[in-house]
Design a protein around this nucleic acid. Sequence first.
DNA 1: GGCTAGACTGAATCAAGCC
DNA 2: CGGCTTGATTCAGTCTAGC
Lengths: 366, 366
Amino acid sequence: MTTKTREAATELPLNQILGGDCIEIMNSLPEGSVDLIFADPPYNLQLRGDLHRPDNSKVDAVDDDWDQFDSFKVYDNFTRDWLAAARRVLKPNGAIWAIGSYHNVYRMGAELQNQGFWILNDVVWRKSNPMPNFRGKRFTNAHETIIWASKNEAAKYTFNYEALKSLNEGIQMRSDWVLPICNGGERLKNEDGEKAHPTQKPESLLHRILVGTTNPGDVVLDPFFGTGTTGAVAKMLGREFIGIERESKYREVAQKRIDAVRKFDKDALRVSTSKRAEPRVPFGQLVERGMLRPGEELSSLNGRRTAKVRADGTLVSNDVKGSIHQVGAHLEGAPSCNGWTYWTFKRDGKQVPIDVLRQQIRAEMN
Amino acid sequence: MTTKTREAATELPLNQILGGDCIEIMNSLPEGSVDLIFADPPYNLQLRGDLHRPDNSKVDAVDDDWDQFDSFKVYDNFTRDWLAAARRVLKPNGAIWAIGSYHNVYRMGAELQNQGFWILNDVVWRKSNPMPNFRGKRFTNAHETIIWASKNEAAKYTFNYEALKSLNEGIQMRSDWVLPICNGGERLKNEDGEKAHPTQKPESLLHRILVGTTNPGDVVLDPFFGTGTTGAVAKMLGREFIGIERESKYREVAQKRIDAVRKFDKDALRVSTSKRAEPRVPFGQLVERGMLRPGEELSSLNGRRTAKVRADGTLVSNDVKGSIHQVGAHLEGAPSCNGWTYWTFKRDGKQVPIDVLRQQIRAEMN
DNA sequence: GGCTAGACTGAATCAAGCC
DNA sequence: CGGCTTGATTCAGTCTAGC
């Protein structure tokens, strides 16, 4: 570490939340002075009318002023400017994490590359409990993308391989992370019970990022601080943080939250190792994967019934159509039926329960 | 269908593999003539030596320390040109799926948006058996991203919601798909045992895409055909395909593969459809046909409201008059209300939803 | 373009009520 | 009191089709 760098570091407003425009403030900080940047910029959502659930309750959407941009061009200019400012304050061996959804992440990723950042991974945050698609017009939007990039191709970025492997029960950490969205007690509320910030990120996400790609004592900058998840987790984990947030109401909530955090709280270091039941395997997957073919005939275990497989993973038998369970139940006149053990297919001249195919898929998943 | 469209359609080289440059060939096809495009373009990393500059000079030298900016520019031009050609051949209500990894997908996604494509979802293909990261320097790169976009914001794209829900055992399909990579018997090999193509996609992926976003008989174009996964699955599922592939060795493998595919029978290809596709039945018809009598009282499903049927097929409750939907919405103070499931009538002492009467009429219509 | 019919929701969390 | 069920609530949303 050179003298100049050390001087710069002592000038840093560590563990503070700075109010104002993140581009201006980042440009006022010493060049090359932070180890990691976590950025959760506005996503530029373009919502039209109101959306209601099938039960007619209204969806509380992100319609705040800070997410309004007139065009892709305006958004691109904004992205270019904050990324350039972020790049400037980053140490030569620093790295950045930037999170987004399909609305903005392609523009952000392309600009990262244009500026010379070197993408190391894109990580998918698979939400275990996303909001469904209420109108049935698209897939449930069940993930967000986080790009991890070093300042340039040659940078010696921090990657705590073993720590991440431990977090993942001894197996190399993958680029898809299954984590719940932020709700329950962790979700900050105003006095009126409304959520304090529309897009609060879960601490588990920041925990994994900071454990994996920083060392204790590192300086972590968050230019879109919001309610301060980055600061709270950084404090817990013994990292220094700098937060920048334009809205004073968010700064206040964040400050209160961080003040309440205890460093190295063992409780906060716990990992979510929920031992689940066996993963659910939809019958349709056997069809998609060619283990059973559309048109193929299945027989019931008792040999009395047959049904044909359809391309969408339903069965048809005479006029009855539906899932393997529904059709089985109907044919037997039973209230319910476990299709997995009821139906068999032919292999090497023998009747084999379709459940063996499910077991095969489950084995592959481990 | 206009004469012009029909002529165009008959000119299409259906179920053929065309040899040559995909941009030139797409531009030679009739405008607005295909329903879906699936594109698996080369990654930025692999383009070295494979791609040409705009002036048609070849980009050469794998180990030249060539300028990274230059590389992105060449790739962006290539992306712009093939996407524009794809957009041209797409029907107004057509859609595109484009797959990539973090090396190229951000540039591809941004250009899609720049050209006016409207992103509907980005889907994450989560590989159940990815290659580990051998050096332990990054996360296991365990996913690829597939962008699904319509030709423009107003397009009426195809989405077989119910079929996808069936494939997923009755639960709405999410944007993260867990599917194994292509290996085993499905992976095509040369005589020397080497894999025939470095990036062969699994048929399960195409199965889900084609079942979910095309109808039988639709034309599916794949400008980077490779060993023909798109064609093979399209044939199985009773869709027409057009493949474009520059390398003759891939075309040969693909043709042999597709020739061996057997179409599934029609019965198996029929998939679950949504209620929206059912014919509309006006409530007044129930009254005209005497299934409900003017003056008869209906109760809401929750038992809290009642209304009287009038001779013209409207309801009246206190001073509120209107359709079954309007009256229901008003009484519940809701923005909207499906009167078919909201209102019940009395039969044999039990409350029965009026929807059963509609179903009765629909059954008679078949 | 305006209006209306009518289709459409999964998982987690927490509170309340019941054995 | 503890464990269980039931119901209400909530989550970054580019969320209709057809007359």
